[in-house]
Every structure is written in C-alpha cells, then in structure tokens.
C-alpha cells in the first residue's frame, strides 16, 4: 500500500482547514449556509401550506380515484431531483411558459424546485398521519358536534406529531438535494448581493470539490451533516411525545 498514508495527508489537511473555516465563522460559509436554510425553509413553508390542507381533503375525502391518487403521491416520494430540476427549468427558462418572470438562476427559482420536491412528501405523509388517527377519536370529534372545518383542525391536532415529523423529513430531503439546485440555481456566487446568490451547501460542495477546494467542501459537508443531525433529533423528540 505504497502511497496510502501520503494520500491521507491532504484529507487530513483539508479537515484541519475546514475546522479552521468553521471556527473562524468564515463569511462565505455563513452566506452559503444562510442561503440554503432560507431557500429550504421557504420551500417547506410553502409546501406545508399547500400540502397539509390538500392532504386533509384527500385523507378524509370520498371520491373516485382516491386510492390511485394516494398511490401516485407516494410514488412521487422518490421523484429524482434532477428530473424535478429539468421540469422546472423547462418551465422557467427564458423561452419557457414562465420565462418572462426571470426565475432561472435565482433563489426564487430554487424555492420553486424544492417546493415541488416536498409537495408529495408532505402531502403523502399528512394523508398517512390523518388516516392513522384512531377511528373512535374521529367519531368522538364528530359526535361532539364539530363542523367540517373543526373536524379537520381537530384531526390535524391529533396527528400533529406525525405531521411535524413529515415536515422535518421533507426539510432534510430538500436541503440535501443537489440535482434540481444546480440545474435551476447554477451555483452563482454573486458576492455583491446576497439575495441573488444561488450557492447553497450542496451546489457549493459539488462544484468546489471539482475545483479542488477540498477544505471548503469538507466544511460545508460537516454543516450539512449537523443539519441532518438536528433534524433527526427533532424527529425523535417529536415522535417520543
């Protein structure tokens, strides 16, 4: 194994530099992390506002094709993010139907991409959470004289922990995806204006690694892992309630 130890040393150096970057609160890293969090939080917020009501209607609705629809939504959990990126790209590029909105290579465009990604996840898991609400509890809500809206709100309250877990899961998937982010965002640094930058944790790792900036990539990778850890802690706290 000649060269193995020699090969380890740049990794070690990269790690050390990465820690230095993290400890010194490198502004570039802070910008990238902040942007990632803003984009993903926005997408998850918008996604939740659409998906939770939508999931409620599907969960307790009686209509033809309900089961097929649920099956379709669950299949979309595994929607490849590059394909989402491609589809959104086709719609928002200059010559696309929404080209005039100038969303390509903007954080707003990336929010759209991630929203599309989290919609089926939050919708589907909201449906599962609501269907899992005990039948006697549902009868009790009705029996207590709830209106249709009061019924849905009460059922959502009962399912709140499962729905919070769904949101956390969607957040984790959105912040760690790279395919759509690169196609739609393009990893533009835009040092002058934070709000036009499209460099997120994942796109920066992808492209900086290619350019040889190992230290930055490792530092960003550690941040991503920390975020994943926090999400996991949130999910387990929520589920142990």
């Amino acid at each position: 194994m000649a060269g193995f130890l020699e090969g380890l040393s740049p990794i070690w150096q990269g790690l050390q530099q990465a820690f230095n970057l993290l400890i010194s609160l490198d502004p570039q890293i802070l910008r990238i992390t902040a942007l990632s969090l803003i984009i993903t939080m926005s997408a998850v917020l918008i996604g939740s506002l659409i998906s939770i009501p939508l999931g409620s209607v599907i969960a307790y609705g009686k209509f033809r094709g309900r089961n097929a629809l649920i099956w379709l939504i669950q299949t979309l959990y595994a929607f490849p993010t590059v394909v989402i990126g491609l589809i959104v790209f086709l719609f928002i590029r200059k010559t696309g139907p929404f080209g005039s909105l100038n969303l390509l290579f903007t954080p707003q465009g990336m929010i759209i991409g991630q929203t599309v990604l989290v919609l089926p996840i939050i919708t589907g898991l909201t449906i599962s959470a609501l269907v899992a609400v005990d039948l006697t509890i549902r009868d009790t809500i009705t029996s207590l004289g709830a209106t249709r809206l009061q019924f849905l709100i009460s059922a959502l309250k009962e399912a709140r922990f499962a729905i919070l877990a769904a949101i956390a899961l969607a957040f984790g998937r959105a912040i760690s995806e790279v395919g759509a982010a690169i196609i739609i965002g393009g990893n533009i640094a835009s040092p002058g204006n934070f709000y036009t930058s499209t460099r997120t944790l994942t796109t920066a790792i992808t492209l900086e690694t290619g350019k040889g900036d190992i230290a930055l990539s490792i530092a960003l990778g550690i941040i991503l892992l920390l975020i994943a850890l926090v999400i996991n802690i949130v999910i387990s706290i929520v589920q142990n309630r």
Binding site: T140, S143, L144, G145
Partner: peptide, 28 residues
C-alpha cells in the same frame, strides 16, 4: 348532534390535557 353526547366502548382521549379534553365540545 349537538343536543346529544356519546361515549364509546373504547376509552379514547385527545392528545392534550385533561382540561382541554373535557372542554373540546364546548370550544366547538
């Protein structure tokens, strides 16, 4: 329905406090 009350065979409570459980129908 609001003139009736029903208790089911399976004892079920909402995942909230005892107070809020009893208050449920009154909030409606």
């Amino acid at each position: 329905r609001r003139k009736m009350g029903m208790v089911f065979q399976k004892p079920v409570v909402f995942s909230t406090s005892v107070f809020e459980n009893i208050a449920y129908g009154l909030h409606f």
